[in-house]
Amino acid sequence: MIDWLAFSRACVRDLEAVLAQLPTRAEREPIMGAGEGGDDTTAIDAAAEAAVVARLEALGADLILVSEELGMRTFGAGGDLRVIVDPIDGSVNAKRGIPFFSLSLAVAHGPAMDDVRFGFVHDFGSGEEWVAQRGGGAFLDGTPLAGPGPKETLEILALEGTTTAAVAAAVPALHGVAHRVRVMGSLALSLCHLAAGRVDAVCCLKPARSIDIAAAQLLVRERGYAIELFEDPPFAAAPLDLDQRSRVAAAGTPELCARLAAALRTV
Rank of each mutant, 00 (worst) to 15 (best):
L5S: 11
R9P: 07
L15H: 02
L19C: 07
A20L: 13
P23H: 07
R28W: 14
R28V: 01
E29W: 11
E29Q: 14
G37F: 02
T42S: 12
T42Q: 02
V52D: 00
A54Y: 04
L63G: 02
I64N: 13
I64R: 10
S67C: 13
E69R: 07
G76E: 03
I84G: 09
I84A: 01
P87H: 08
I88P: 09
D89W: 07
G97I: 08
I98C: 06
I98D: 03
I98L: 08
P99N: 01
L103K: 10
A108T: 04
P111G: 10
P111W: 09
M113S: 15
F120Y: 15
V121E: 05
G125P: 01
E129H: 05
W130Y: 15
G135I: 10
D141G: 10
L145H: 06
L145W: 04
T162D: 12
T164H: 12
A165P: 09
A168I: 15
H175C: 01
G176S: 03
A196F: 00
R198I: 11
V199M: 04
A201C: 02
V202W: 04
A208N: 05
A208S: 13
I213Q: 09
L219F: 04
E222Y: 05
E222M: 11
A226G: 05
F235T: 12
A237G: 06
D241N: 03
A250Y: 03
A251G: 03
A258M: 05
R259N: 09
A262W: 10
A262D: 15
L264D: 05
